[in-house]
Design a protein around this nucleic acid. Sequence first.
DNA 1: ATCGTTGTCGTCACACTGACGATAAAGGGT
DNA 2: ACCCTTTATCGTCAGTGTGACGACAACGAT
Lengths: 220, 220
Amino acid sequence: MVAVDLVLLTIRQQALQVLLIRRGIPPFLGRWALPGGFVLPAEDLFAAAERELREETGLSAAAGHLEQLATYGDPARDPRGRVVAVAYLALLPDLPVPVAGSDAASASWRPVPAEGLAFDHDRILADGIERARSKLEYTPLATAFCPPSFTIAELREVYETVWRTRLDPRNFHRKVTSAEGFVEPTGETVIRDRGRPAQLFRRGSATLLHPALLRPASSA
Amino acid sequence: MVAVDLVLLTIRQQALQVLLIRRGIPPFLGRWALPGGFVLPAEDLFAAAERELREETGLSAAAGHLEQLATYGDPARDPRGRVVAVAYLALLPDLPVPVAGSDAASASWRPVPAEGLAFDHDRILADGIERARSKLEYTPLATAFCPPSFTIAELREVYETVWRTRLDPRNFHRKVTSAEGFVEPTGETVIRDRGRPAQLFRRGSATLLHPALLRPASSA
DNA sequence: ATCGTTGTCGTCACACTGACGATAAAGGGT
DNA sequence: ACCCTTTATCGTCAGTGTGACGACAACGAT
């Protein structure tokens, strides 16, 4: 009667992508759906979300970020009967792992926006994306999409991808490095493709950004 | 198995208060608890929250503001067995009604912080208060605590009470009146206690404040 | 009339922002 | 070697929002 559904977001191939599973059984046979499953009788909700995350990706929650999103309880959301779904949102770095499918034969990363999902998963996904967009503004969670060390340009690409915007590299650099506890320099530098080598950074200790990085007004 | 719990906040007697019910049956007999109840088999979660709100206060959700807060599912949170609680947060104007107790004999407004509540209601209440504090920053929801028309000073008292801070009346006035769609003048004026008459305002149409009203740095 | 009280407008220095110029440090081609 | 392109990083400047606070307006009480 109580299920946990996951919105797993990552950035692959310059695009925001979500992990979806093609359903092998009715209802919604053959349709894409968010991964999820029922909560075990003596299991905490967060623990259930962590378990699903591990089953689907092999990752622990520590690698990225996992938080409760919202709960969906429309009596008609599941044709089989009353199922209340507690949705969790995860932001994950790009995995070399091509999704260790456990029971789900065909799981894969799909670009967002995705449409025509099973159940009310279109709305859950939309809510998750909006939450992610908004959290980038006032928390350092963009680093959850990055590997342990990264350049400012890579962090900027995260913002540009999630917000679907272009950001001025010079202003972005200034804001990120002046926001207390957002990123810390590792001291190393690295050459990515062309151009001058960039400094490497790791996540800072802040949980809230001050000042915040507000997205530009027009978000079509 | 699925319950809805309500965090009903209002401002009475210059203080932030929450509606609590003294439990008449075990477990936690005699302790204060958040109002709540089980979700009916064919009932939507939001509808269940609205129903509880109406039963406890006689108010409809339209009078104030009602939103989902979070879901709590620790297997041990209810000694009687597994109950997943979907918590809702409501911000309400000060009711002349002294709480129309339906089944709950002893419901009353209690000042926050309240401690020693039944179940995990201490945490739910704390989460609700923090959500309310934070929402005042970037939404016009402070008006949900006010009657249909109000003065800027009354709106300021809402902020001061919820944030436990003093705000400069002149700066507050400037920010509120310059934030697009926050409040609209009704054209009328009113004399409250002493001093110069104040203009009356009603809620504007905005759902997001721009620019936001950030709370001062130190929030003890 | 004077005073205390509350509401409203103005001023000023400072912080943050967006737009954009300038320089640094790499690789590629000739 | 020498340009040229590319990317990273630092600086500048005007506009805007903010906190601190002065000034005045409009009421009731004395």
